[in-house]
């Protein structure tokens, strides 16, 4: 059953066509990777799905509901969370506070009431703290909870971003190059974690340049080049596809010119 579907999605930046009539659907509880050379439109696609950029044309469906052009906070509230290619943790907060902020939509206390430490407000705060701590524990960052978020090494900051996205309890999670800047060992551990997240019932859209990681954990792969889908299928099919090999390595003719 598909949880998420994109139809004929296009994005033009004045003269440049970043995405050209992209269509695909994502099956529930799978890891779907989106790969392609630099500038293929992967990050643009994430920006549009998460509501940060409006598309030029086309539509996005989540379940049966159309979410095209909804503002980011509404898309998050529907169960779609994301991380960023350039890490965007809140720098003046601790690791734990960052993750608690990720759970924003699950708590109710408004601005006015939050100044009074009423029992229900305190209880809510305690729950938020416990949930955030549990997520950090599961990511192996439990002992870093009270560190300033941006004081951690790069690889761990990526894990905090994933934890923060998890805190909104998403049904669909978009990871934008989660392994960038990680050591090979950290990448291995990350692959395992992403698998665990999928097994816990979350569908994952993954943009990643580390092909080892992509081939290891993906259920389905979509290849973008110049804003168009050029191939789609399981890792073994994608690895054999001549168009994909061409996009990544160039054709013989191209090489001959040099």
């Amino acid at each position: 059953m598909s949880i998420f579907r994109i139809e004929q999605l296009s994005k033009r930046f004045s003269g440049l066509t970043a995405l050209n009539a992209v269509s695909f659907s994502v099956e529930n509880q799978t890891i779907q990777a989106i790969i392609g050379p630099n500038g293929a439109g992967k990050t643009t696609l994430f920006q549009i799905i998460s509501g940060v950029l409006p598309p030029t044309a086309g539509s996005i469906y989540y379940g049966e509901e159309e979410i095209t052009r909804k503002p980011p906070h509404k898309i998050c509230a529907m169960g779609i969370a994301r991380t960023f290619q350039m890490i965007r943790l809140f720098p003046d907060m601790t690791v734990l506070e960052n993750v608690m902020t990720g759970g924003h939509i699950h708590w109710k206390t408004g601005v006015f009431m939050s100044g009074f430490r009423l029992p229900n407000v305190r209880g809510e705060e305690r729950d938020a703290r416990q949930k955030a701590q549990a997520i950090l524990d599961s990511m192996g960052l439990g002992d870093k909870a009270n560190y300033p978020a941006t004081s951690l090494p790069y690889g761990q900051q990526r894990l905090v971003e994933i934890s923060r996205a998890l805190a909104s309890e998403p049904k669909l999670m978009m990871l934008d190059e989660p392994a960038a800047g990680m050591t090979p060992q950290e990448g291995e551990a990350l692959a395992e974690k992403i698998g665990d997240i999928r097994d816990s019932g979350v569908t994952i859209l993954l943009v990643e340049h580390d092909m080892g990681l992509v081939m290891e954990i993906s259920d389905q792969i979509i290849v973008l080049n110049y804003g168009q889908v050029i191939a789609e299928g399981s890792p073994s099919i994608i690895q054999q596809d001549p168009k994909v090999i061409e996009a990544y390595l160039g054709t013989k003719d191209n090489n001959a010119q040099y």
């Binding site: 940060v52 980011p72 906070h73 998050c76 965007r88 943790l89 924003h104 909104s168």
Partner: peptide, 9 residues
Amino acid sequence: LAASTMGID
């Protein structure tokens, strides 16, 4: 931007 993608209006 990050705040809004965390569901903050």
